[in-house]
């Protein structure tokens, strides 16, 4: 579903992502963990086509994001860590815009507005929305078009506990439906509970990769993901 081959990104002399190789299959929830500046967001931005890799390849459902960006983008849904949306559109208009640009029907707009408890604010301008509401609106814009791959950068930031639980359930359901979810997070608990496989990245390199159990085995003595994370990132 997602295949990263020798993926590298340099910003001038600084290497943000260093020769990453990854393969994530259909229906998998894959988590990428790492300290600040490790290269998580850069990786997600490259997969979504927002950033151009310095070298290497990204293949999403058989489409090379550099060679066939339109085909690849049609099946990708991206939720950035700070999802800025057009402030002078209403929530409903934003979803209509998304439906239009991705060429899908608008029939499900009300359903998703209801699901994310945005129905009452649907006809208000987005500029009056809180960060969490905007986050949910963008997520509704992703789900409404049923993408095959969802990229989430810090997906729970700004969400209240109820919404956080809701979106976690949604991610699980999407995964069962066969949607691949690639998420980056600082919340180790989220990664531990949600992800079927994890990668720990530091200074642009993957330093550990596998299921939670495999990672625990990797570090031998550690009991939970937090211990594993600290052990691995401190050793680098």
């Amino acid at each position: 579903m997602i295949k990263l081959t020798n993926l590298t990104k340099k910003f001038k002399d600084k290497i943000a992502v260093d020769d990453i190789n990854l393969e994530i299959s259909s229906g998998e929830i894959f988590g990428i963990l790492g300290p600040n500046g490790a290269g998580k967001t850069t990786t997600i931005k490259m997969i979504s086509g927002l950033l151009k890799p310095t070298s290497g390849n990204i293949n999403v459902c058989g489409f090379d994001i550099q060679k066939h960006p339109i085909s690849a983008k049609k099946i990708i849904g991206l939720l950035p860590d700070t999802p800025f949306v057009y402030q002078k559109l209403t929530g409903r208009e934003f979803l209509e815009f998304i439906c239009g640009i991705y060429e899908v029907g608008c029939e499900k707009i009300d359903e998703y507005l209801e699901l994310f408890e945005l129905k009452n604010a649907a006809d208000e301008l987005v500029e009056s929305y809180s960060h969490g509401m905007q986050q949910k609106l963008v997520l509704a814009g992703i789900l409404i078009r049923d993408p095959k791959v969802i990229l989430l950068d810090e997906p729970l930031v700004g969400l209240d506990p109820k919404s956080a639980r809701l979106v976690k359930n949604i991610y699980n359901e999407q995964s069962k439906k066969g949607t691949t979810i690639f998420l980056s997070t600082h919340i180790l608990e989220l990664a531990e509970k949600l992800c079927s496989r994890l990668a720990i990245i530091d200074k642009g390199k993957i330093i550990a990769l596998g299921t939670l159990d495999e990672l625990k085995t990797h570090t031998e003595t550690e009991k939970n993901l937090e211990d594993v994370f600290f052990r691995l990132t401190e050793n680098v």
């Binding site: 209509e96 239009g100 640009i101």
Partner: peptide, 17 residues
């Protein structure tokens, strides 16, 4: 409703939204 979106009477293709 859906002036921006695909349910519009004008068929939305690419840039219209």
């Amino acid at each position: 409703p859906c002036v921006i979106g695909a349910r519009s009477t004008i068929k939305s293709r690419g840039i219209f939204p």
